[in-house]
Amino acid sequence: MSVSVDVCDLSISFGSGATAVKVLPGVSFSVRSGECFGLVGESGSGKSTVLRCVSMLTDFWKGEVMIDGRSVRDLPLIERCRTLQMVFQDPYGSLHPRQSVRTVLNEPLVIHKLGDREERMRRAITDVGLPVSFLDRFPHQLSGGQRQRVAIARALILEPSLLLLDEPTSALDVSVQAEILNLLQRLRAERGFTYIMVTHDLAVVDHMCDRFAVMLRGEVTEILPHEAIATNGATHPYARELIGASLEYEGVR
């Protein structure tokens, strides 16, 4: 249950005519099967947009996205959902305000005709460190971090092969972050999940990822192995600056 991802010359513009803005001029990168690939870079540089394109939430892009050699455009919706799931940056927006946690988790199980629903829901909610009683809560009754954990549970419940994670732990305290990162590591080891993970925390990248791409204004400036963080082995000036600032911020220097 492992898939590779090839993003080839992915480009997208928003708006039309004189006000059109090319947000991604042409992004390319490849993620190996079972790899954890990081996406870092300037706020507003297009990281979330890349994930939205790969997942087909936004579909008017040009270029090619191949999942295990098949164009993501050719995957039927049901198969796409079983193959890839996304955890959004903004957990409030991604949870329907009038749906209880139970409804949120149950819906995909019904659509995909999976059995043992109660058991699967209990496991998913426990995996993200929440008590089973939270199944009956509504989003507004949850703290920011609890909402994010529900969003992660929803992504995991269909056991996809590829997880697109948009700052999955930036709303969590570091002890809960540790539990989620350990869970993601374990799932990757046990089930061969592939991850593409957006984060601003280079310590998380160094801990989780094999390689990562540094983005600036819609372009990938450089792709580096995670070991390049501690030594600041980047050559592109922006990538060097970002890693340098992070080392200073972490007090590594």
Binding site: S175, A178, D201, A203, D206, H207, I229, A230, S246, E250
Partner: peptide, 20 residues
């Protein structure tokens, strides 16, 4: 203390993080 120990660090071991 548990929070401080759970923080991933640049150049760390990549072993599972300490949990509380």
């Amino acid at each position: 203390q548990g929070l401080l120990a759970a923080q991933p660090r640049i150049g760390g071991t990549r072993q599972p993080l300490a949990v509380l």
